[in-house]
């Protein structure tokens, strides 16, 4: 190779290298002398994030999201590019528990659909259970029952809730037991139950049997038959409402047939 070629190749290398060196050194110096202390966990969480800086989480870049996670306890599930693996690693790092010991599922404690439970009046307003509940106490005859305007279905992150005949139902296979539907239900009739539990009392009405019968043909009337025919201690009465004690294993499923209003059901 003649010296021209060497010069031609070397010069750019030299210059770019030199520029890089100058910049690198100045950056290093700057980083050293102008450092600002911050929570080391922010940097660590930033490492765990994919670093795409896509802003899809609603924060301006990964570092900002990491800061929000560490400082403001932001939701750790917002990163779409990172996916489940990213969520798990952040969960592990932040010490947020990812799952409980027993698998739970949400359950709507009401089986009074439009066929069995009457509505007192025609509701004309926005499709929101809390809003409907605030108007003359909700249109459902039973003041404990599911209104069926689907607020729970709309907050469900995995679309596990559907509204059928004016009644919300949770799809057990999809439910991740996040509890959002429980928080949004104005009547507080969605509960977390063990996924493995075979039978449930699908009623939330604490009214006397006669009053329940007036408004719903499938409500618990407090007849106590389940406490007699079911397993010992599996059914507990709370006033006029029976409910299942999930710590007791169920063996005798014939209570389903015995219940006069058929509100004990399999899920």
């Amino acid at each position: 190779m003649d010296s021209e070629t060497i010069k031609f190749i070397l010069t750019p290398f030299l210059w770019v290298g030199l520029t890089g060196l100058v910049i690198g050194v100045s950056l290093a110096l700057a980083a050293k002398y102008m450092a600002v202390r911050e929570d080391p966990r922010i940097a660590q969480v930033t490492e765990l994030l994919p670093g795409a800086n896509c802003g899809g989480c609603g924060f301006a870049g990964c570092a900002e999201y990491a800061k929000a996670i560490v400082v403001d306890n932001a939701d750790i599930t917002l990163c779409a590019p990172g996916g489940a693996a990213c969520v798990d690693s952040i969960a592990a790092f932040m010490g947020v528990s990812a799952g409980s010991v027993e698998k739970m599922t949400a359950l709507v404690m009401c089986c009074g659909d439009d066929e069995s439970a009457e509505r007192r009046f025609s509701y004309n307003g926005i499709n929101d259970c809390a809003a409907a509940d605030a108007l003359a106490g909700g249109d459902k005859g039973c003041t404990y029952g599911c209104l069926g305007y689907g607020s729970c279905a709309r907050v469900c992150p995995v679309n596990a809730i559907i509204i059928e005949k004016g009644l919300a139902r949770v799809n057990k296979a999809l439910c991740i037991a996040c509890g959002k539907c429980i928080a949004v239900c104005p009547r507080k009739l969605i509960k977390l139950v063990p996924t493995a539990a075979p039978i449930h009392v699908l009623c939330n009405s604490k009214d006397k049997g006669a009053d329940v019968k007036k408004v719903c043909s499938s409500g618990c009337i407090g007849c106590r038959l389940c406490t007699k025919f079911g397993d010992e201690g599996a059914f507990v009465m709370d006033g006029f409402l029976a409910h299942v004690d999930y710590s007791v294993p169920i063996t005798r499923e014939e209570v389903i047939e015995k219940c006069p209003s058929k509100c004990i059901r399999r899920n």
């Binding site: 025609s122 509701y123 307003g125 003359a136």
Partner: peptide, 15 residues
């Protein structure tokens, strides 16, 4: 959201 008044029931809405 469909207001119907099929039976004797009144319509209830917000003011």
């Amino acid at each position: 959201m469909k207001p119907e008044n099929t039976s004797e029931r009144f319509i209830v809405s917000s003011s």
